[in-house]
């Protein structure tokens, strides 16, 4: 049983050396293990900022609040320590790291997160199995991390990492955008597999209800102007899809 709590979180985007802008204006959210929380909200409202700030992205600075994983404030931890503590972020725009092969990268990260190097044979088997489950061609293992991957291929590899690293909490930032129908199904299955033992808490950032047909949310939150403006059950997603965010944007402004 894991409890992931975001409390009163405020954060700035660092624009240049002496320019910054507040984006998160007090975010409160609690995710228990096994729960799926969908976050929906207009462009620019700060959803990715929330995801990046929690992960420790260097372009964002948290000015107030805390993020607790089973009571421990992970904001005191370095970026890699947060990941090893069990927080995972699937990025909206995964980063290309040229020259570092996907398989080397995954072996390093699995070793770091599990605290010991997996046996090479066992690791290869596990990786091949996970790739197959996500309909990723084996040749990708030898390519550079996200190097020249299409948008959809990058998203699949984010979920591949989710499955290999088995975190306690996963923030999935628009993992569904840019996916064709088949890929959406494949990726959703991957998320559901990761959650199948009941331990994983998921924060699913999305613009579309399409993915929510496959990955069923327990809660839906409306994110507007740097905070959660309204929360509800799965039915809220339908309302948002038909009515849009207008009402919340006005409230927030």
């Amino acid at each position: 049983m894991t409890k992931f709590e975001i409390r009163g979180l405020r954060a700035d985007v660092l624009i240049s050396e002496d320019e910054r802008q507040e984006i998160l204006k007090g975010v409160d959210l609690t995710i228990n293990s096994g729960e799926t929380h969908a976050i929906m909200g207009p462009n620019g409202s700060g959803k990715s900022t929330l995801a990046y700030a929690v992960a420790g992205h260097p372009r964002y600075e948290i000015t107030e609040g805390e993020v607790l994983l089973d009571g421990e404030n992970i904001l005191d931890l370095e970026v890699d320590e947060r990941a090893r503590a069990g927080v995972f972020l699937a990025m909206q725009y995964p980063v290309e790291v040229p020259g570092v092969s996907m398989s080397n990268f995954l072996r390093s990260s699995v070793t770091a997160v599990r605290g010991e190097a997996p046996k090479l044979r066992q690791f290869s088997k596990e990786l091949q199995g996970a790739m197959k489950g996500l309909a990723i061609d084996p040749s990708f293992a030898a390519r550079g991390v996200n190097e020249g991957f299409s948008g959809g291929e990058k998203k699949r590899h984010e979920i591949l990492q989710l499955e290999m690293l088995k975190p306690k909490v996963a923030i999935l930032d628009e993992t569904d955008s840019g996916l064709d129908v088949d890929a959406l199904k494949v990726v959703s299955d991957g998320i559901n597999r990761a959650q199948s033992d009941g331990g994983l808490g998921v924060m699913l950032i999305t613009h579309y209800t399409r993915i929510l047909n496959y990955v069923k949310p327990d809660f839906v939150h409306v994110f507007a102007d740097g905070r959660i403006a309204e929360s509800g059950g799965p039915e809220l997603a339908e309302v948002l899809e038909s009515e849009g965010y207008e009402r919340f944007v006005k409230v927030g402004a």
Binding site: A55, G56, H57, P58, E78, V79, D80, R82, A83, R84, L89, M91, P94, V95, V97, V100, F105, S108, S109, A112, V113, V145, Q161, L165
Partner: peptide, 9 residues
Amino acid sequence: FYLRSRGIP
């Protein structure tokens, strides 16, 4: 950041 966000020191 990307590599470290996957737990790599």
